[in-house]
């Protein structure tokens, strides 16, 4: 009895320890880097909360940074490097999105990495910038950031466009070039394994079911077994056409530009997508 109590105590302590360490990890995962001090303390707190919860929901890192100095870099390079240096992003592909508000160049830039490249095609990034930049022009930086988060969530929920292709800037025009990849959903292996498992269990059950049915012996006769050959006479055959229905669907032919995600390679060697606009 006493032993059991100790075990329970140890388990509780372990759980508590895990919980605390999880909390500290979450606290350490800062999402907002407001170097240009564009947000008030309350705005920053609320944005921090929103980005953390959005990151969890879409399973991609969401980062918002502001800066007064571009260190001589373009917005694109600055955003990509900041993302790479800080090791943002989830998973092996460093899935995530970064919003840069660059006050030196008065430019807003969205950088995508990993899975986010597929979600945020060039056209979608343009649409997002359309939503964000009016707020920035008016100096409502936090609203601009909120518009970014809203439109990001909207597009992730929409899913990856069916015709999405990824085109690296080094793309030469040859579709077999490795810098040109047509998106194919790479399911995580456990999900794929689960689907395979369900199908194979179904096949197994089906095969055993058929075997069990055959165990009894099958009826080996059919209509022709006892039919006097040549006795079957068709006396009357009528095929009357009564109705015709024609339906049509429009095929989506402009599969070109809308699904393209242009990517480039950052100084750190990582592949990023993105786009920016002056405000």
């Amino acid at each position: 009895m006493k032993k059991r109590k100790y075990t329970l105590l140890i388990v509780i302590m372990l759980l508590a320890g895990l919980f605390i360490s999880a909390l500290t990890v979450m606290a350490a995962a800062q999402k907002i880097y407001d170097e240009a001090e564009l947000f008030s303390a309350s705005e920053k707190g609320s944005l921090e909360k929103q980005t953390v919860s959005l990151s969890e929901r879409i399973n991609m890192d969401v980062i918002i940074i502001t800066t007064n100095e571009n260190d001589g870099k373009t917005s694109s390079a600055y955003a990509d490097d900041f993302y790479d240096m800080n090791g943002f992003g989830y998973g092996d592909e460093a899935d995530g999105v970064l919003l840069l508000i660059n006050m030196e160049d008065r430019e807003v830039y969205i950088s995508t990495c990993g899975k986010a490249i597929h979600y945020l095609t060039d056209r979608r990034i343009e649409n997002m910038l359309d939503k964000i930049y009016p707020h920035l022009s008016e100096g409502n930086y936090s609203e601009g950031a909120a518009a970014f988060l809203n439109s990001l969530e909207y597009y992730v929920k929409e899913g990856i466009p069916a015709n999405q292709v990824t085109k690296d800037e080094s793309f030469t025009g040859n579709p077999s070039d490795p810098s040109y990849t047509v998106y194919r959903e790479t399911e995580n292996p456990s999900k794929k394994a689960l689907i395979c498992l369900v199908i194979s269990l179904g096949i197994g059950a089906g095969v055993v079911g058929v075997m069990a049915a055959h165990n009894k012996g099958r009826i080996g006769t059919n209509a022709n077994t006892y039919l006097d050959p040549r006795s079957f006479k068709l006396l009357h055959a009528e095929d009357r056409h009564v109705n015709t229905k024609i339906t049509h669907v429009t095929i989506n032919t402009n599969s070109g530009g809308s699904g393209t995600s242009s990517t480039h390679t950052s100084s750190g060697g990582a592949s990023h997508g993105g786009g920016g606009r002056k405000f």
């Binding site: 009357h236 024609i246 339906t247 049509h248 095929i251």
Partner: peptide
């Protein structure tokens, strides 16, 4: 069939009647 940017599906409906005679032996 496809024509231009539209895919057409045509369904033709028929009423079918069949009548005949047959001889079965030794069921």
């Amino acid at each position: 069939w496809t024509s231009g940017d539209k895919r057409y599906t045509e369904t033709k409906y028929y009423d079918v009647v069949r009548a005949g005679t047959a001889k079965f032996r030794g069921i």
